[in-house]
Structures are given as structure tokens and as C-alpha cells.
Amino acid sequence: MTAAIRVGSRQLLLVVLCVLSLYPLWFMLDTALKSPQQYALNPTGLASHPTFVNFQSVFSQWPFLTWVRNSLVATVVSVGVATVVAMMAAYAIVFSRGRGRELFVRTNIALMAIPPVALLVPMYTLMVQLHLINQLPAVIIFYCGLLVPFSVFFFVNFFREIPFELVEAARMDGASPSRVLVRVILPISGASTFTLVIVNAIFVWNELLIALVFLQANGSRTLMAGLALYQGRYVTNEPLLMAAAFLSVVPLGVLYVFGQRFFVRGLTAGIGK
């Protein structure tokens, strides 16, 4: 009896937490399906006459697809470059014997905790001098730099788990360092790399402050910067804003549903050993 109550109350706790976790998303979708008048009359109730007009408006009245494209480009390029750069560095750190290797790793760990905002003014002036303001490369360069420390750290930890004999054997056979990386290391790094890519991609996709400052032109904004800037203009049209917000969340939701084990693995690998 008491055991049943205990289990029941635990289930209840988790159900409540799940409802709280999902409610804002539900609110977004529900609101997006209403007309502004319906929302004003009944902000919390179910959309009685669902309309897709808000979703259509997001695409027809906003440069939404341009923003999505910009976000995709920024994400793919910065994550791609940072991943390759970090992988090469980590590979060299783990599988060679240069001096200062531990210093390099520790520097990366320390830099992971630097607040990006502290770099904002100098990076902005640098981009001004390079004439890159309002262009995607401005944020891509910055994002790359910000992603490298964690990525190096991640790969160093992963590579250290790889039996050294594997690498040594390939070298004995005369393989060059690049060949060892491509033929030996890469094939066994797929899942880990994918995990890192997801974690980094979420950071870039969701980033607001840098995009807000560096990308002022409508055509160069990322999705988050566009959303934040249109908030002011459309604040009195709740359904339209919620439709846009919901659409900006969808790609992550889809990624999560299909790649959830990578998220969890990425977050938990190496813990508790």
C-alpha cells in the first residue's frame, strides 16, 4: 500500500515536471493557431478554429527562409571548421610527444569558461576593420574561435581512450600522420564526432548576442537575431510571433527526436568512471 503510494507520487512528480517542460511549447503552438482576436479573447484555451495563416505570414511577410538559410550556413561552416581544427590539434596532442601539451589542454579548458561577451568589443572592431560587418563570415569566425576550446577538450578526452597500439601499429607499417588520422582514428570516431557536432550546432543555432551585434542587415541575420529584432515590431501580434518562434524550434525538436541518444551520450560519456 505505502509502496503503491510512493510509486504513484513519484510518477506524479515526473508527470508534473513533464507538463511544465512542455507547456511553453504547447502554448507557442496553440497561440500560433489562433487569430489575434481569438488570442485576445482567450489566451490560454484551445484554438477553437485553428488557422495556419500565421505560419503562412511568417514565410510570406518575413525574410524567414533567408534567416533559416543564414543560420544553417553559419552553423554548418563554423561547426565543420571548428571540428576539423580541433580534431587535428587533439590528435597531435594525444599521439605525439611535444612539449607544452598539457599546457595547451589546460588553456583550452580555461578558455571554455570565458564569457563571450568579454570578447565582443574587440571582435567587433576587428570585423569592422576587415569590412565583415553584416556578413556571415563575421559571426562564423567568432563562433569557430569560441567552439575550438571545448572541441579540443572533447577530442583529447576521446582520443586518450583509444589504445595507443592501434596508432603505433599503423605507424610501424609506414603510415603518415595524416593517413593514421584518416584511416585509423576517423573510422572509430564517428559517434563521438557526431555527438560533438550536435552539441556545437545547438550552440551556434541558438546564439543571440553575437548575431545581434554583428548582423544588422535584414538579409544577413540569423534566425535568432531576426526573431529578437522582429519581437519589437510584432509584439502586439502574439500569434504571428509564436508561429515564428515555433518554427525556429522545430529543427531542434526533430533533431532531438531522432538523435536523442547522441545528446544523452554526449552529455554522459566519461562520467563516473
Binding site: S21, S248, V249
Partner: peptide, 18 residues
């Protein structure tokens, strides 16, 4: 319960503002 962690704060913040 993990889902909110990966969602963009910008979009979720808009919802929370209402």
C-alpha cells in the same frame, strides 16, 4: 525533461514574455 535544455532561449523567452 531534458528537452528544454536544447531549445533556443530566444524563442522560448518570447513565449515566456507572454
Amino acid at each position: 525533461i531534458f528537452l528544454p535544455y536544447i531549445l533556443p532561449a530566444t524563442a522560448m523567452g518570447l513565449a515566456f514574455s507572454y
